[in-house]
Design a binder for these strands. Sequence first.
DNA 1: GTGCATTCTCGTCAATAAGACGAATATTTT
DNA 2: AAAATATTCGTCTTATTGACGAGAATGCAC
Lengths: 235, 235
Amino acid sequence: MPDDEGWTLPEVAVAVDLAVLTVHDGALQIMLVKRGIPPYEGMLALPGGFLASTEEDLDVAAARELQEETGLHAKDLHLEQLRTYGTPGRDPRRRVITVCYLGFSPNLPEPAAGGDASEAVLMPVDKVLRPRATVAFDHKKIITDAVERARSKLEYTTLAAAFCGPEFTVTDLREVYEIVWGETLDPRNFHRKIMSVPGFLVPTGERVSRQAGRPAAVFRRGPATILHPAMLRSS
Amino acid sequence: MPDDEGWTLPEVAVAVDLAVLTVHDGALQIMLVKRGIPPYEGMLALPGGFLASTEEDLDVAAARELQEETGLHAKDLHLEQLRTYGTPGRDPRRRVITVCYLGFSPNLPEPAAGGDASEAVLMPVDKVLRPRATVAFDHKKIITDAVERARSKLEYTTLAAAFCGPEFTVTDLREVYEIVWGETLDPRNFHRKIMSVPGFLVPTGERVSRQAGRPAAVFRRGPATILHPAMLRSS
DNA sequence: GTGCATTCTCGTCAATAAGACGAATATTTT
DNA sequence: AAAATATTCGTCTTATTGACGAGAATGCAC
């Protein structure tokens, strides 16, 4: 009854947080920042913060916090809303609801830190999600949700390519799937499946040989966004 | 930089809205309420409202608003978070961000209105989403998202059963799919697919004959929540 | 009742997609 | 030059879907 007499707007702080995932060193990693102030001072947390003003859009706030805390630019990665977390007590200072964003970043834009973001680190999600590990607030739950969303999105969209640089090989893409899903895929069947999706990969005509073996064809992302039929995990 | 000197918490109002869908009269319908106060007075809008207090959880607020504005009880339907809408200017009074919930309701709990909810109506989504139709705020966009999410959820979950009563036939379930997706499905292939998912349907042992024709077996929802492999739309 | 339309259910066959894996190709490494 | 490695193409088998025939079990018209 927001318009009753005697009712006043509850003071709720609105924040945005970012769960930015990337594939690095053969592992799915997440961008975290070391908190410089209480609460949870010194602990690792998702980058994020409160809206800067009454007029700031949520997407803009997310992009701004990303830039401020990690040095990454929103235009260099895929960002989408994950979900909103608002359980009372999740921040000991006051009631906070946080609109959380999920980011897929290619490995390329350098290892994150540097620039403003002196305290940004990349950490394997396996490590962060271990039972003994701790992160600030309810961010462990958020990271769990983010990882599950990412795994699921690879099944029915072409977003795996968002983990790769602008040019990549079929093997690069397969490694993304293998690392994010934590299972190995048959290179031959994967190749066939990916190449059969119209508009997923656009050949550049070039080839690279990364180590030994036959050089791989180089591709760019095509216009396709969904995988139909989906590529399902075995589990 | 929420902890800088001279920075004050932006005053943002937090609301919850509900997009409750149901299958009724052979159409996918959504629960709307007629607004009794400005802005958009007299127009149709999603049920919802501001948090009642600083301590109210989002899920609780959603359940409360649902009850207050439509008479429905949260325990009688499936509710999940849809997404959060917060574009500045979406409410002319002040900055509002609204955490939106998606609901799947069986037809049974009576045709909605009655009780407190004198102004609750059920309306076909086709009608609401027509180009000429108008609803309050950005609710048309929210309804579009809700319908798309619902259509998509039927593909890879067993949530279609949430549109049915506690007991239903395979045909009841098929009609839910047909109405939500807006396409006809082969009864024989649908029957085979549904029955091949372990734990989707649990037979009650009973049979009903709704009109003419062979009586259909009656089922209850089983423990399964996901469809694997998924049942994909043709589009 | 008897015949007929109706609808649920089971079954068949072909088309499509996925899993398993052989093998040719084109490199780097030794 | 030979061996090792990785990419790509192709084959065979198996699982799943799409199209549809047909029997089973009912209500309804007469």
